[in-house]
Design a protein around this nucleic acid. Sequence first.
DNA 1: CGCGTTTGACCAGCGC
DNA 2: GCGCTGGTCAAACGCG
Length: 519
Amino acid sequence: MFRFPVSLGGPHDNPKQPQSSDEQPHRAMVDEVDFFRSEKRDDQNIITDETKRVHVKRENSRVVDDDDRSTGINTGLNLLTAHTGSDESMVDDGLSVDMEEKRSKIENVQLREELKKAAEEIQRLKEMLSQTTNNFNSLQMQLVAVMRQQEDHHHLAMTGSKDIANKRHEGSEMVPRQFIELGLPTAEVSSEERTTVRSRSPPSLLENSSSRQRGKRLLEREESPETQSNGWGNPNKVSKHNASSSNDNVSAIDQSTAEATMRKARVSVRARSEAPTLSDGCHWRKYGQKMAKGNPCPRAYFRCTMAVGCPVRKQVQRCAEERSILITTYEGNHNHPLPPAAMYMASTTTAAASMLLSGSTTSSQDGLMHPTNLFARTMLPCSSTMATISASAPFPTITLDLTESASNVNNQTNNNPLMQFPQRSGFTELNQSGLPQMMGQALYYNQQQSKFSGLQIPTQSLNAGESVSAATAAIAANPNFAAALAAALTSIINGPNNHKNGDSNTGNNNVRTSSVERQ
DNA sequence: CGCGTTTGACCAGCGC
DNA sequence: GCGCTGGTCAAACGCG
Ligand SMILES: [Zn+2]
């Protein structure tokens, strides 16, 4: 299907990324997983494309093939036409040898120019692919969710498996609020809408909190949705529009609530990384840090600063048990163009969030009753493992586990890796109540055995770019988007899995860390 | 000096 | 109502 704009290129990587990243605790960037590797490799790929026209053609044909398959995305770039034209010019000659030599030289020059043009087109094509990947992922997620839901209906009616039924019953019990909000868009009262309600009553708020500047700041922010100071300006605008004409336009409501839900939906990525954060190509600014309950490691809050007003935020926290595992939770969608390096993670998280959204909103009844199981089945058409859906969190969260510790793939019901993480005491308590909140299965990505989701990807000898290419291959080979999702993310987490504990623990609410997030 | 991080405080939601 | 917790803010601070 889609190919990430990353080459299968050679071993020379980004020079700023040393190969041996050990023993560099004072340089956080050194140990970070570098997404920009692929960008460098992109240029390299261009060079190879220039020298190998066959490769260019194949890539183009692949795109056409994709269009024929299911995506329906027309890049509008016809690389083959240009080359066939040049080929035609080579056909008819037969004059003298000198003429042929001259002609061949001219053709060489022309060919090189065409190759240059083709390379440029390829570059543009790759960028377009990166952008369209995002949209396509979302669409495919939704489609798969719908299909799986139908299948789920049928399956439930036919067999009535006890396991599934139990799971669903538990699931319906354990998600009293979150998926109600998700499942019934029209009835959803999101936090943003509540915020809007507050903001729509400015006098009381202002008077009540007149003594506090904070209230005034909040008011200012929310009363100026067009200003860029508010990171959630767009949702607020939508909510206000919603409130003003709530009964008029149903589609607008759905869209706005969908956006709100998308923003609330979170995509959590568990990955082994000694770096304080995952370098995903975006620019993040830290705006807070807190001690999470039940976890000695602090939780850092980041905000996307690539564009003013970008609502995307992420939380970075280390696993309590295994501090080499970094849990990065993304929330929101970027409202600005992203560099290719940031596209990987952004598209992945967006797709996952959209799947979370679609699975819970496609059918208010079924999605309401059995959301988690639906997700589990949606994302796990194969027997292998994938991602987990959490409904216990305040926000619906899809967790992509890229750690090799996600074991126990044998048992269908007990292989929830998140249950093995006692750092989330809330989860543990919920589990003790007999309500497993994670119906899905974590992605099982074994770096030693180089397999995940039933796909054989030799990652052992691959570097980051090659892993991305492997991910691309996985996408092309397997329609299961979950696998593709995992592959894309796996390519991100390529760094050595050495343990590094750079977090200092204090009893204070705020903890000093040496986190560096400059890119 | 500008920008990013730190960190104490504030706020809302939730459970009791 | 109170306390806990997650999330956020912004002044203070540090660094290049
Ligand atoms: Zn952004």
